[in-house]
């Protein structure tokens, strides 16, 4: 099973890319392959004029259509998804996400832009007719780092949320496996019950 991640960050080594990197580790453990594409993988002229007949654009459309699900990852720029993401989403044909679950991964400079997930990105995914749009993971950039080897390292709270989200996303793909951490809201619910 293959999931396609579309990276909307102009930088390949961005914090947003690190969210994909951590998702890949979790998906691989579930035997789900993750491929990643960003605008750097396409010739500029084909992107700029939306040349649907260009071989690399057709290859992209083919990869979208054969993927079991998609991860849509973007930084928040100007309180919305990055233009570099939308350039790629514009190449997906009308209704091109029909029948596919989508997991949004979003990074922003402050918690104040959380709602960009719901107000900016999800409407576009809905327009592409994604069958199930996961709640998504919003990360504040200060929670995303790298270890000495340059591998992505997330704040524990974020890592747990991402793991939970990836497992829920896998369940939407029909791959069921217990998440390494119970969802935070479930913990809260149980702890509240106990405290009663």
């Amino acid at each position: 099973m293959t999931v396609l991640a579309i990276l909307g960050s102009p930088s390949k080594t961005s914090r947003t890319a690190r969210l994909i990197e951590r998702s890949r580790v979790a998906l691989t453990a579930l035997d789900i392959e993750l491929q990643t594409l960003s605008i750097h993988d396409f010739p500029a002229d084909a992107l700029l004029h939306g040349q649907f007949s260009h071989p690399q654009i057709q290859d992209f459309q083919q990869r979208v259509s054969t993927a079991s699900g998609l991860i849509i990852a973007t930084p928040v720029y100007k309180a919305a998804y990055a233009g570099a993401l939308k350039v790629l989403l514009d190449l997906i044909p009308e209704g091109g996400l029909a029948g596919k679950p989508v997991l949004p991964l979003v990074s922003g400079g402050s918690p104040g832009h959380l709602l960009a997930v719901d107000y900016s990105i999800k409407p576009v995914l809905a327009a592409l007719k994604a069958s199930a749009i996961h709640q998504g993971v919003y990360a504040v950039e200060s929670q995303i780092g790298a270890n000495a080897n340059g591998e992505a390292e997330l704040a524990e709270e974020l890592e747990q949320r991402l793991q939970t989200a990836v497992h829920e996303f896998a369940a939407l793909l029909g791959v069921n496996a217990p998440a390494p951490h119970a969802p935070r809201y479930a913990n809260d619910f149980i702890s509240r019950l106990i405290s009663l």
Binding site: L48, Y77, K78, A80, Y81, A82, G83, A84, L85, K86, V87, L88, L89, D90, I92, P123, V124, A126, A127, L128
Partner: peptide, 19 residues
């Protein structure tokens, strides 16, 4: 209107405008 929103290149242009 592309995919119910402005085009990617429209947004990419304004991403370069200082906030």
């Amino acid at each position: 209107v592309y995919r119910a929103s402005y085009t990617g290149l429209f947004k990419h242009f304004f991403d370069f405008v200082h906030h």
